[in-house]
Design a protein around this nucleic acid. Structure first.
Lengths: 146, 146
DNA sequence: GTTACTGCAAAGCTTTTGCATCCCT
DNA sequence: AGGGATGCAAAAGCTTTGCAGTAAC
């Protein structure tokens, strides 16, 4: 059950299809470099320019969204339905949070800013890293953020 | 009514005091480069290493927090009380949102991740840019994110 | 007197850009 | 056929690092 990419409204080159295939159902929230490395296995001539170009085009056509959770680099999500994320501050793993929150801004702020979107970001420690830090007894050092 | 910086627990060099002074009460959410440029007026030998070093030390001692709202670069906030932000996707201006939201995760997720912090990020268009885009009739092009 | 910070410069990542060539529609 | 995409390489941002000298505690 693959999406019909013809409807996206962009030229479908083999490279773009490979990037789309790499993103489809991908819940790892890959960075541009992750995508580049993955797609390069199949297209050894794939360039960064093409990856960034394609991500930009897909973003404009509502096929991916760009995440800002990870302050080290941009990460991408093929799931464009509104949802939130939690990131492990140790390893950088990002998980989806499919819960809806009531995020109503007070009048004062709503009048000032024309709000287009809102996201909740949770920061914590994933089970894997939690176990490791407990074993090592080293606390939360080497953590990525906070 | 300046904070007593002795309590922070880090060595207080003139450079660090200048960075602290630049941050105190600063609600512009500056980037490292913004801080560098500002502090350099007073300390022309100030280096990036020192800015990043100091920000890291202050972060570890709970004196600043690092924001991820702006996917282009890290920005810093001397206000470490839990609060949220809204960013203008056109000019990148960030404003504080001092409203508290009920952000309780479902059991399922809470059990998996050990949550340490959570932030809400609003994206929109600030009054200044909103007026400009309306005048130019050019829509929201050249926007930074989304 | 130690320990830790500073400054400089170089390196490391991530992201963007220019341009000739190529190919999808 | 034409407009847009690709690939390459170089450049541009942002952030980190190594190291010798220096200053805070």
């Amino acid at each position: 059950m693959t999406k019909d990419y013809k409807d996206i409204g962009i030229k479908l080159t083999p490279q773009r299809l490979a990037i789309l295939a790499c993103l489809e159902g991908n819940t790892t929230h890959p960075s541009a470099d992750d995508i580049y490395k993955e797609v390069r296995k199949q297209y050894p001539t794939m360039s960064f320019a093409t990856v960034y170009n394609t991500l930009e085009a897909l973003k404009e056509h509502g096929q991916v969204s760009e995440l800002s959770v990870d302050s080290r680099r941009r990460r991408y999500d093929p799931d464009t339905k509104p949802h939130h994320h939690m990131m492990c501050v140790v390893c950088g793993a990002i998980k989806d949070v499919h819960e809806s929150f009531r995020l109503v801004l007070p009048e004062k702020e709503r009048k000032q800013f024309r709000i287009l979107d809102s996201r909740v970001e949770f920061y914590g420690i994933c089970p894997h890293c939690d176990m490791k830090t407990k074993t090592e007894g080293g606390g939360v050092n080497g953590s990525i953020q906070m």
